[in-house]
C-alpha cells in the first residue's frame, strides 16, 4: 500500500473493505438483529466498542504477543471487552439488551473483530488501528442501518427511532408485508444488496477495461 492517510484508512473501512458487503464477515448479527433501525444501531454500537477496544489492545501489545499463541490472546482480549459491554448494556439499556438477546455475547465469535486483529491491528500502530476500528465500525453501522431501515419500513410500514416516528407510508402501513420482518426477509434484503454491490463493481470493471 502506498501512503497511508487517516482519512483514507477510515474510508477504506466503509467502502472498499466494508465488513459485511465486501468481506462477507459478521453475517449472523447483521441479519438477526436488523428487524429495526434501533436494534441495528445498538448492535453496531456494541460491535464498534469491542472492535475499538480489541484493536487498541492488540496493536499496543503487538510486540509482546508471541505469534504462535496470538489467536487465543485475541479471543481473550475480545472476550474481555464483550463482557464489559454485555454488563453495561444489561444495566443501562435493558430493552435493547433484551432485543439483541444472545447476539451480544456472540460478538466474541464475530469474524469481523478477530479478522481485524489478525489482518490489521497486529501489524499497525495504535493510531492507525483506532482509525481502522472506526472505519470498519462505521462500515458495519452503515450496512446494518440500511438493512434495518429496508426491513422495518417494508415490514411495518414505518420507521420508529427512539420513540419518534421518522417516516411512515400512509396506506401501506395498514397492511405491511410482514414477510420482511421475518427471517426470510433478512436473507432476501442482504441478497439484493450484495447483488447490487456486485453489479456496480462489475460495471466499473467493464468501464475500466
Amino acid at each position: 500500500m502506498a501512503e497511508k492517510t487517516i482519512l483514507g484508512e477510515y474510508l477504506r473501512g466503509i467502502v472498499k473493505d466494508n465488513p459485511v458487503l465486501a468481506l462477507v464477515l459478521g453475517l449472523c448479527p447483521a441479519l438477526a438483529v436488523t428487524t429495526s433501525v434501533e436494534n441495528a444501531i445498538g448492535m453496531s454500537g456494541a460491535a464498534l466498542f469491542v472492535l475499538l477496544g480489541s484493536n487498541i489492545m492488540v496493536s499496543a501489545l503487538r510486540k509482546q504477543i508471541p505469534p504462535i499463541i496470538r489467536i487465543p490472546m485475541f479471543i481473550i482480549i475480545i472476550c474481555t471487552f464483550v463482557t464489559i459491554i454485555d454488563m453495561v448494556m444489561e444495566a443501562y439499556t435493558p430493552p435493547l439488551y433484551k432485543a439483541l438477546g444472545i447476539f451480544i455475547p456472540l460478538i466474541v465469535v464475530n469474524c469481523i473483530i478477530i479478522g481485524r486483529a489478525e489482518a490489521y491491528a497486529i501489524k499497525n500502530n495504535v493510531k492507525y488501528s483506532i482509525v481502522d476500528a472506526f472505519g470498519i465500525g462505521t462500515g458495519f453501522l452503515v450496512v446494518l442501518v440500511a438493512i434495518g431501515a429496508i426491513r422495518e419500513l417494508l415490514g411495518t410500514g414505518a420507521i420508529v427511532l427512539f420513540g419518534f416516528k421518522l417516516i411512515s407510508i400512509p396506506i401501506y402501513s395498514d397492511t405491511p408485508a410482514t414477510f420482511m420482518i421475518l427471517p426470510a426477509g433478512a436473507f432476501m434484503t442482504i441478497g439484493v444488496l450484495m447483488a447490487l454491490v456486485n453489479y456496480n463493481r462489475i460495471r466499473k470493471l467493464k468501464k475500466g477495461a
Partner: peptide, 22 residues
C-alpha cells in the same frame, strides 16, 4: 446473471428455504 453469482444467489435460495421454515 454475473452480479448474482455466488453469495447473493446462495442468499436467494436461503430466502426460499427460510420461508418454508417460518
Amino acid at each position: 446473471p454475473e452480479a448474482v453469482q455466488g453469495i447473493p444467489h446462495a442468499f436467494f435460495i436461503t430466502t426460499l428455504l427460510s420461508m418454508a421454515f417460518v
